[in-house]
């Protein structure tokens, strides 16, 4: 069986977001922004794309009066990420 490279991960930002969400249960917008060193707009557009593909889910809650948005990777997102990793591994090993 040939594992395909996932097209969605061609973007460094999307790959970064998914890496962080694989290593952490969830991450909020500002954590993602700081870790990836991005502007609000840039990050938001990539997050929307990932959400549309149902690879991440968005949770909105209020902490006091401030809205806080956090993101989690979905089962589908995890599966695609793992497939992508396997594909990368195979490419490097030259199979």
């Amino acid at each position: 069986m040939i594992e395909k490279l996932q097209k969605v991960f061609e973007s460094r930002v999307r790959l970064g977001v998914m890496s962080i969400l694989m290593a952490n249960e969830s991450a909020d917008f500002n954590t993602l922004k700081d870790t990836l060193d991005l502007t609000d707009g840039n990050l938001a557009s990539h997050l929307t794309a990932l959400e549309k593909k149902e690879m991440i889910s968005v949770n909105k809650e209020f902490v006091g009066r401030k809205p806080k948005t956090s993101y989690t990777s979905t089962a589908l997102g995890k599966q695609l990420f793992k497939q992508h990793l396997t594909a990368l591994e195979k490419l490097i090993k030259g199979q």
Binding site: G16, S19, A23, N24, T31, T35, L88
Partner: peptide, 13 residues
């Protein structure tokens, strides 16, 4: 890409 994944995972945890 693998390096980037590793560094993002490490930096965020």
């Amino acid at each position: 890409q693998l390096n980037q994944i590793h560094s993002m995972m490490e930096q965020s945890t």
